[in-house]
């Protein structure tokens, strides 16, 4: 998905650069060719002809801009759900896996269930109980399993 959007954007930028370069070349060529005629032609005529570009350059510019827009739109990340129950359900059902980006990292603003603090309550944490539970977990061999795995 991402390489498609990147290549489309790159193509669009290439077109845009090409269109700009063509426009510049056209105006430069036009000014030199009109400079030799400036003695005979009227001044007003020069300004009106130099301001108009050939139609193919205009079309190329427009196509390039639309291609860039298309590429950027294709590259947007998946939209977040706007319904509360869908969003909450995604948190409960998918956990961290639902909020990882392409690089495999969890989104920075992912907090899980934001109301979980009402049940874990960090302000009232009973550190002695937690230590006891952890020591028990280690005694039961939980730590050894983990060491073997890693």
């Amino acid at each position: 998905m991402t390489w498609i959007s990147k290549s489309v954007t790159g193509l669009g930028l290439l077109f845009l650069a090409h269109a700009c370069y063509s426009a510049y070349e056209h105006s430069a060529l036009h000014s030199t060719s009109t400079a030799s005629l400036s003695s005979t032609a009227a001044h007003t005529a020069i300004t009106s002809t130099s301001s108009s570009l050939p139609i193919d350059i205009s079309i190329e510019t427009l196509v390039a801009v639309f291609t860039v827009c298309l590429g950027l739109v294709l590259g947007t990340p998946e939209l977040r759900p706007i319904q509360w129950r869908v969003w909450a359900g995604q948190i409960e059902r998918e956990g961290e896996a639902g909020f990882t980006n392409i690089d495999g990292q969890v989104d920075k603003d992912y907090v899980g269930n934001p109301f979980r603090v009402l049940e874990s309550r960090p302000g009232f944490v009973d550190i002695r109980k937690q230590r006891k539970e952890f020591a028990e977990w280690v005694r039961e061999g939980g730590g050894i399993d983990e060491a073997k795995k890693s």
Binding site: W84, R85, A88, R93
Partner: peptide, 8 residues
Amino acid sequence: IELCDDYL
């Protein structure tokens, strides 16, 4: 359940 789909 109304607030959260598939809430076990």
